[in-house]
Design a binder for these strands. Structure first.
Lengths: 185, 185
DNA sequence: CATGAATCGTTCGGTGCCAAAAGATCTCGC
DNA sequence: GCGAGATCTTTTGGCACCGAACGATTCATG
């Protein structure tokens, strides 16, 4: 048995408040509970909040912006990348979207069935396949993206311009660390 | 380096470099490609980098830290929360882990089958179930967490203490926005 | 040319994960 | 007490998503 939940308070009897505020709870007093091991709590909070923010932002976007078009976050990302960058082969598309190749295949099939994207074999190298938006896909993303961006603005509420840029900058450092190859296992 | 917008037909001829650097490519020249719509690119970069960072960090953690114990990120999170906070009912656990309740059920079953956690019906309210670490689970998380924290430190490399705290702070604002209830539909 | 190595997309097996519906239990007015 | 409604968890159905294995194609080398 770990910790003493009853020590400080009855954690379980404020059930109504599990949203919007007590997500901070998990951060409180962690040091107290963990004692003085050699832990870097600042790294912990920085990294774990990334994931927490990402799932919260994603889930809400899927509910409030994407669901009306039957798009998942991943599907939306695919359309967006193709919109901004134009057609590209699947390997690059997967990398741009942050997806495994195998994952992309299935999602492309879904999008293709809905006539939002099109696959085409590359003539000069028949191993490769390029993917492009159809006109339906173009219409959809052009209609949807401004609303998605408005959602991003809403998620950034309370951040100044400087802070948004700082947030993006700090995250880029983390991304770069995570994508770096070949650490010691 | 990737990206001259002009010759984007030939994006495919620099294939080897899809890691570690050209994740920045998607950010460059977006304005040029998108024209002058009323878009807030600072919010876009801030928010989209959150997700990009989260998946990169998660995937690598699962490969390099968690896989040797057959744990997913979600499974690890459950153990960690139970470790830090002690036993709790499933609703609260789901909220702490950022999971849907239904998701938690399945993952708890997996963890329970491996004897890492235990469910127990609450006597005073038989609808509720509390979850606690078993001694095996305790052993595992106590062994694993220091290594996980070392991984978090590695992912924060290049960030000063101040920057880590700033990153966590800015993310908390985003989390709070995303968890807020009842925006206009 | 021929053949082994490299590269590319897809297939496959298995979780993770969600939303909605179902099932179980408690509560409260009457 | 008793039934309607509120609260819990679990079940269900369906994608998303990964890693490894596979088949097809291209390329390098002799």
């Amino acid at each position: 048995m770990v910790g003493h939940p009853e020590d400080n308070e009855n954690l379980t009897d404020n059930e109504g408040s599990t949203d919007g505020e007590d997500f901070l709870a998990a951060e409180r007093d962690i040091r107290k509970r963990l004692g003085d091991r050699e832990l870097d709590l600042d790294s912990l909070h920085a990294i774990s909040n990334i994931y927490r923010a990402a799932t919260a932002v994603r889930r809400r976007a899927e509910r409030e912006v994407l669901a009306q078009h039957n798009l998942s976050w991943g599907g939306f990302t695919i359309l967006w990348v193709l919109w901004v960058w134009g057609q590209m082969d699947t390997a690059r598309l997967a990398s741009e979207c942050g997806l495994a190749k195998g994952t992309l295949t299935g999602m492309l099939t879904t999008l293709e069935r809905r006539r939002l994207v099109e696959r085409e074999q590359v003539k000069t190298d028949r191993r490769k396949v390029t993917v492009a938006l159809t006109s339906d896909g173009l219409t959809l993303i052009e209609d949807l993206f401004p609303r998605f961006n408005a959602y991003e603005v809403a998620m950034s509420e309370g951040l100044s311009l400087t802070e948004k840029r700082e947030l993006a900058r700090l995250l880029r450092i983390v991304i770069s660390n995570a994508l770096q190859k070949g650490v010691r296992g």
